[in-house]
Design a protein around this nucleic acid. Structure first.
Lengths: 132, 132
DNA sequence: CTCCATCGTTTACACTCGTAATCGACTACG
DNA sequence: CGTAGTCGATTACGAGTGTAAACGATGGAG
């Protein structure tokens, strides 16, 4: 009997910080083998190849990356766009810390002097464009 | 013998999301008893008083809140300012996702239409002030 | 055909987080 | 004086994370 399997609405599972490092490698260039990912990230983070493999598996489980067999090994490709990831992460922060309003975040960054003159110029340009 | 205890440079321990909810209550008004904190947060989050007490203990351990005995019970007060917390959290995000530059974050928010006209006006005002 | 390097998979293990139940001390009520 | 409520402290426990070793298949070098 085929009973209704209530497919979970597939809300995108959270990607952890270590996992993100792996995603960054794949966002930069893909598909990659586990080896290649390791060449990108093992050095900076001091990881072993095994660690990368674990992270890749978890990302596959989370449906964040896709695998494609290539002979003996696998090629890994991101299934979610970096911009999407960045989007939900920034939104989370803005919600959590600034009641969902972006302006206070901006105000905070400004006050904390986290804005370089370049940033300011860039933002001004963006604003001009937004208003047009 | 008194040997050198290498006091760890007391890098501020991370505050988790649940813990933040408790901090928010204390930032709004303090000092508070565990009871009072619970009155603020247990409803919205569906927590038990015990949960709040656990979170408070952890925050005390993390040196994020201070305790002051008040007869039988304790009064809890934040030891870190909300603006500091907000600061490090936003910085983390900007570092993690935008290479430390604030402008790309702004660009992203703009593109994602996460900016209301009000936000834009507010930011313009801020910019004007920054330039003066 | 054998053996080693290499894959992906499975298992491991300590630590944090979310969410509490339980415990021992104390106090206020009867 | 006993006892029920209340406090903070201790313990619990499953899920997720960071980090990896161990395992089993397999393909290529002799």
């Amino acid at each position: 009997m085929e009973w209704d399997v209530a497919e979970k609405p597939d809300q995108p599972e959270r990607i952890s910080e270590a996992e993100q490092a792996v995603m960054e490698a794949l966002w930069q260039r893909s598909p990659l083998t586990a080896q290649e990912v390791c060449e990108e990230v093992c050095g900076p983070r001091g990881w072993s190849l095994n660690t990368v493999k674990t992270l890749l598996s978890r990302l596959v489980a989370k449906q964040a990356v896709a695998t494609e067999p290539d002979g003996k090994r696998f090629l890994y490709t991101p299934r979610i766009a970096r911009s999407d990831y960045v989007g939900t992460e920034s939104r989370r922060l803005v919600d959590r810390l600034f009641g969902g309003r972006a302006a206070p975040l901006f105000a905070h960054l400004a006050q904390a002097e986290a804005l370089t003159p370049d940033d300011i110029a860039e933002i001004e340009a963006l604003l001009k464009e937004l208003k047009s």
